[in-house]
Write a protein that binds this DNA or RNA. Structure first.
Lengths: 210, 210
DNA sequence: ACAGGATCTGACCGATCGGTCAACTAGCCT
DNA sequence: AGGCTAGTTGACCGATCGGTCAGATCCTGT
């Protein structure tokens, strides 16, 4: 049920050097739970049961439930910051905006569960450091994509791109196709739709339906 | 903080005829809480405190927390069913599809909090009757908008329309403009974006940005 | 063999959860 | 006045919450 991630795990962990494998498992389990049933509705006991550990063991690896959330979301927020900084650093051209779309899609596909978590629960988790940091990043992102003179439509398109991606890549697939598309099939379609929403200068007209 | 809705309240409630004013207040408060912090994170005590009543009083008006959720969401689901039935009944033309978009936008604006609640929390609330009913409606909606031969892009557009609207109309505005747009300013922009996503035959090319 | 650190666990804590219940109040009809 | 009903409340219940703590266990370096 749970798909843990093994980032080049060494056979012999060098005595407390890198994060423990157990910790990585717990983070992966916590992420799926936070994204699917929500942070508030996920109990430490719940995570422990899935992982096959006791609740005390979870609290040995993470100081608190909030600390677990922070460690779960931090890599995604770091990567989003990288993508955004790369975009705002360079002069804005059609090419850089299109490359931003590609960077952003890579981010979406890699961190879809993290995005879904902090997009749809930011309201209730306000005050937690990583959530507030993510919120500021979203504001910066909106300001970079939509200029001061942006129309209501363009601001709305940005919101649709963000909320639509978070929904479609996680919950939406439950409704649409039962079998989730592999990422390689998803990417070109995602690129088309995201480009329509975020890169208005290069809208490709589509043929009429059927 | 809370903005209750008073739908043509009679001065003298006809002795148990219509729903009580207190019940309507509680439903409105519960809706804002469910939509903003989530069903699981909203306690009956929380609702009672905002309303100025005791928790026991809330449980006098509603048999349980789940029953409260059902009564809160039912009007929205009923209306969504009306909009969908109207669309699938008629032969599909460009005109009917565009009118569906208008109907759907009316639905979005009137029931944005309800939509946000069951779109973003359906996973964790599975098993509750009204949520399952809403889920089936969404599947029917997807099947009606996207035909069997619909491309991945079109299915993705439908997901973006649904998730994007739920996000943009509730949480998104917190990030974008601090001051929420009045509905009359929002509607034309919403119509443009939703039409691009849901009515592919009538995409209006947009002028290049700035 | 031994020591020591890392890991894991059950018992336990106060707080809060959703929900039940008996009692109280206030209006309304006869 | 007396009874009926709707509305409201505090006391209380078992369950679960996040979190603490004192050990048990296991592995490794010496």
């Amino acid at each position: 049920m749970v798909v843990p991630i093994f980032p080049a795990s060494p056979v012999t962990p060098p005595a407390g050097g890198i994060r423990s494998q157990t910790g990585a498992d717990l983070r992966a389990i916590a992420l799926t739970q936070f994204a699917s049933v929500g942070f508030a509705a996920t109990s430490l006991q719940n995570i422990a049961d899935i992982a096959g550990f006791s609740k005390s063991s979870v609290l040995y690896h993470f100081a608190s439930k909030e600390a677990l959330l922070e460690q779960v979301l931090t890599p995604a927020i770091d990567q989003l910051e990288v993508v955004l900084d790369r975009f705002v650093t360079e002069p804005e051209t059609i090419a850089t905006r299109e490359r931003f779309v590609d960077d952003f899609i890579d981010f979406l596909l890699e961190f879809r569960l993290e995005l879904h978590t902090f997009i749809n629960q930011a309201q209730s988790l306000r005050g937690i450091a990583i959530i507030d940091r993510a919120g500021l990043l979203i504001v910066r992102l909106a300001a970079s994509i939509c200029h001061d003179d942006a129309s209501n439509e363009d601001r709305l398109r940005f919101g649709f791109a963000l909320g639509g991606a978070a929904y479609s890549l996680v919950a939406g697939m439950t409704f649409l196709g039962e079998a989730t598309l592999p990422d390689d099939d998803l990417r070109p379609a995602l690129r088309t739709v995201m480009t329509e929403l975020l890169a208005p200068v290069s809208v490709h007209p589509r043929p009429a339906h059927s």
